[in-house]
Amino acid sequence: MTQIATLPTRRDEAWRYADIDAVERLGLAGISEWQDIAVPAGETKRTCMVVGGDAPEVTRIRMSVGDGGRAEVFATSAGDDYTRLEIEVTLGKGAHFEFGGVTIGGGDATREFVTQTVHAQPDATSNQIVRSVHWGTAAGNFLGEIKVARHAQKTDAAQDFKGLLLEAGASANAVPQLEIFADDVKCAHGATVGQLDEAARFYMAARGLSPEMARRLLVQAFIGDAFVELEDEESREKLLEAALSKLEGKL
Rank of each mutant, 00 (worst) to 15 (best):
G194F: 04
D160S: 13
Q116T: 14
A199D: 14
A120S: 13
D108Y: 06
D197M: 13
G140P: 10
L164R: 08
V133E: 06
E145C: 11
G144T: 05
I87W: 02
I87N: 03
Q128E: 13
D183W: 03
E86P: 00
L165E: 11
G190L: 04
E88Q: 12
E112D: 14
G101R: 11
Q128G: 02
A182M: 12
Q153I: 07
F161E: 01
L143H: 12
Q159T: 08
S132T: 12
A172D: 03
A109R: 11
T137S: 14
L91Y: 08
D183Q: 08
Q177R: 15
H151I: 01
A95I: 04
T192Q: 05
D184K: 08
T137K: 15
V185E: 05
H119V: 03
F202M: 12
D123H: 14
I180C: 08
E198C: 02
A188F: 00
Q121K: 11
T117P: 05
Q121M: 12
T110M: 06
I146P: 05
E198W: 00
W135K: 08
A157R: 11
D123T: 02
K154R: 15
V102G: 02
R201N: 05
Q153G: 11
R150M: 03
S126I: 01
S132Q: 05
A205F: 07
Q121N: 01
A158K: 10
V148S: 07
E179I: 08
A199S: 13
S171N: 09
P122A: 07
R201H: 12
